[in-house]
Write a protein that binds this DNA or RNA. Structure first.
Lengths: 215, 215
DNA sequence: TTTAAATTGACCAATATGGTCAAAGAGGTG
DNA sequence: CACCTCTTTGACCATATTGGTCAATTTAAA
C-alpha cells in the first residue's frame, strides 16, 4: 500500500553513474548516448529516465557528485606538512584512496575543464574553476615554497631549484603511473604495491637531495 | 583538353588532412563525422569523396602519413650522444620541429594506440606498435643507460638512480608543456622561447647533478 | 567555344538520437 | 487470493545525422 522500496536501487544507481561517467568522459555531452549508458549499466532505457528525468539532469548529478568528492579530497590535505616528501606521500595516499573509491567520477571530472564547461550554470562553472585551481595549487608545492622546510636540503644546492626539480620528477612519475593505471585494471591488492613503489621513489629522491645525515 | 591541374589541390588536401586529424582524434573512427570534416576543411562533401573514396580510405591515408613523419623523426635521433642533457636537448629540438610541421598528425597519432587499432590491417598494426615502441624506447634513456656517460655525474651519487630522476623530471616538464601547448596556440615566434626555457631547465639539472667543475 | 577535370550540395536509405508510455513485474498488506 | 503502489521494461516516436552518390555547375586551359 505504502512505498516500501527506497525510491532507487543503489546498485543500479551506481551502475548508471559509472556507465554515464565513462560515456560522458569518452564522448563529451553531445555525443554521449543514453542508449549506450543504459546498455553499459545493464538497465532499461525507461529506468534511466525514471531516475533522471533528462540527459542534462543526469549530467548535473554527476557534476555535483564529483564536486563533493573533490572537496572532500581537498579538505583532507594536510596543509601544515613542511617535509616535501612526506607532503607528497600523504598526497599520494589521498589520491589513491580517492581513485579506489571513485574512479569513474575522477575520469569524468578530468574531462570537464577541457570542454563542456558551457553546459553548466554560471555559479557551477565558477565552483568548478575554483575547485580545480585550488587542487592544482595544493598539488604543486612550487606555488607555496614558504611552507616547505628548505633547510633539510643539501646546503650546496639552491633550495627552490631543487623544489622545482622534485616537483617535475614527481609529476613525471605520476604521469607514467596514470598511463599505467588506465591500461591495467587495478585490483585491491596492488594498491599497496603502488604506494610502496612510490615510497621507494621518494626515498631515492630523499637520498639525493637531503643532507647526508638525514638518511 | 588534357588534365592540367595536378589531380588534387594541395591546399584543400592539407585542409582536409588537418580537419580529419582533429575530428578522428576527438571522436574516434566511428563517431567522427565526414560532414564535420568537410565543414571544418571548408570544402564540399562531394570533394572529400572525390579525393578519398571512403571514410576508411581517408583514415588509412592519415595513418600512412603519420607513420612516415614518425619514422623520419625516429631516424633523425642521434643515437650516439652520450651526454644525457645534450641527448634530451636534441630530442626536444626534433620534437618541436615535428610539432611545428605536423601538429595535427601528431594529435591524431596520439589517439591511435588507445583505441581504433582494430581498424588497421594486421601488418599495419604491427608497424604502428613497432614504431611507437621504438620511439618510446628512444625517448626513455633509462632503457639504454649504457649509452650514457655516467662519469659526468657527481661521484657521491648513484648514476642510474640519478638517470631515473632526470628522466622523470623531464617527463614531468614535458607533460606540463604539452598541456600548455594544447591550450595556447603556438606561434612561430615563441617556439624558440620554449626551447630556450627548456635549455634553462636542463642547465639547472646539470648544475644539480653534474660534477661541480663541469659547469 | 569546346572539353575535361574540379567542385558543389541536394539527396538517399539507413541508423541513432533523447525521450515517452502502456504494460508487465515485484512484493507488501488485507 | 486480490489489491495496491512502486519499479522496471522495451517497443515506439519524431527528429537528426550518418556515409556515400551523382547530376549539375564552375573553372580554366586549349
Amino acid at each position: 500500500m505504502q512505498k516500501k522500496n527506497p525510491e532507487v536501487n543503489p546498485e543500479k544507481l551506481k551502475a548508471i553513474v559509472d556507465a554515464a561517467c565513462y560515456e560522458f568522459a569518452k564522448k563529451g555531452y553531445d555525443l554521449a548516448s543514453t542508449n549506450e549508458i543504459t546498455k553499459a549499466a545493464g538497465i532499461s532505457k525507461g529506468l534511466l529516465f525514471y531516475y533522471f528525468e533528462s540527459k542534462q539532469k543526469l549530467y548535473n548529478y554527476l557534476i555535483s557528485l564529483a564536486l563533493k568528492k573533490l572537496w572532500d579530497f581537498h579538505n583532507k590535505v594536510d596543509k601544515n606538512e613542511t617535509d616535501v616528501f612526506r607532503y607528497y606521500e600523504k598526497m599520494a595516499q589521498l589520491q589513491l584512496e580517492l581513485f579506489k573509491k571513485s574512479k569513474s567520477l575522477l575520469v569524468f571530472m578530468g574531462t570537464i575543464p577541457k570542454k563542456e564547461m558551457s553546459l553548466l550554470s554560471k555559479p557551477l562553472q565558477d565552483e568548478v574553476y575554483k575547485l580545480l585551481f585550488s587542487i592544482q595549487t595544493l598539488k604543486d608545492i612550487t606555488n607555496h615554497p614558504e611552507k616547505i622546510n628548505l633547510t633539510l636540503f643539501r646546503s650546496d644546492l639552491d633550495g627552490f631549484e631543487i623544489l622545482l626539480i622534485i616537483d617535475y620528477a614527481i609529476k613525471g612519475y605520476e604521469a607514467k603511473l596514470t598511463k599505467c593505471m588506465h591500461s591495467i585494471d587495478i585490483t585491491e591488492t596492488n594498491f599497496e604495491e603502488v604506494m610502496e613503489d612510490f615510497r621507494k621513489f621518494l626515498q631515492s629522491l630523499r637520498k639525493v637531495f637531503y643532507k647526508k645525515e638525514r638518511i
